[in-house]
Design a protein around this nucleic acid. Structure first.
Lengths: 153, 153
DNA sequence: TCAGCATAGTTGAGCGCTCAATTATTTCCG
DNA sequence: CGGAAATAATTGAGCGCTCAACTATGCTGA
């Protein structure tokens, strides 16, 4: 094992600030969505991605890719969304292994009802607390980190 | 309900980049710690905070505050850490309602063994992918968000 | 052609977290 | 003082996620 390059003070402060912010933020987002719309943040993400897709439908694997979640996580989640009638699954044309998840009208309505309060929460805790420059910086930083983690194909 | 101020394109991109990065990152951190040190990231955080405290001990409520976790979460977590022999609990002097969690020698060793690989992971996925300026920006952004969420006393 | 491997997705056990309820102790103040 | 409220922490039910194992279908080449 090579030497460990510990974090400098500045790096440590940045890392901890990011961790702290993210922890508090994710808890807050989850709570807001849970209380006001009866769904965890992960479900909201799934509904959003489906709502943006052609025909409001996506293959399970595509949906897993865009939501950055494992196949297993998605399977469990979509199963529950289906129970609620927010999403419907059917076999994909041309590949009977595949499943296509489709957002139902009810699912779309639920999403439309949840979105305003969710966006307000994101604004209140993140966007509106940052300068436009910081918003741009956050995008660049996020991209740098995400790209590094994505390339692990 | 007031009008909704939806996110602009730039805001949307920043928010999604941050979400994506954080999702991938937290999954990666959790997996690394789980595989190499048999603990979730949350447990690591608890061990770190205890190791930095005077006498390697903290009141449950202080530990909850510094790790930004609920009392309930912490109770469950410390119960498991105690089962593993990494932490010990005893009643606080002067207030028999309180409990003091103390890092055991074994717990300290486990933390010391886990730390190098964890720090390498944080470097590889975050710090070393950012410029020093970006590290400073991340701290400022993190602080802005965390401060907003903390003030909800 | 068909065996072997790859791909798509599901399933169940086990764990950590949330919420609400609960226990135990201390503080406040009429 | 003594009862009510505040504080400290735990507990258990329920849910979402991970991992590993599994089913089912498609592809590929000797």
């Amino acid at each position: 094992m090579a030497e460990v390059r510990w974090l400098s003070d500045a790096e440590q402060r940045a890392w901890r600030a990011y961790l702290e912010a993210t922890m508090l933020l994710f808890d807050a987002l989850d709570r807001q969505l849970q209380v006001e719309s009866d769904m965890p943040h992960g479900y909201y993400e799934i509904l959003v991605r489906l709502s943006e897709a052609d025909g409001r439908a996506l293959r399970m694997s595509e949906l897993a890719a865009t939501t950055r979640s494992s196949r297993s996580r998605l399977s469990h989640a979509v199963a529950r969304l289906e129970d609620r009638g927010w999403v419907r699954r059917c076999v994909a044309e041309g590949d009977r292994r595949g499943q296509v998840a489709t957002l139902t009208d009810l699912g779309f309505e639920v999403l439309a009802a949840a979105a305003p309060a969710h966006v307000r929460t994101v604004r209140a805790h993140v966007i509106d607390r940052l300068t436009p420059e910081q918003v741009a910086q956050l995008e660049a930083i996020g991209r740098a980190i995400a790209d590094g983690l994505s390339e692990a194909t």
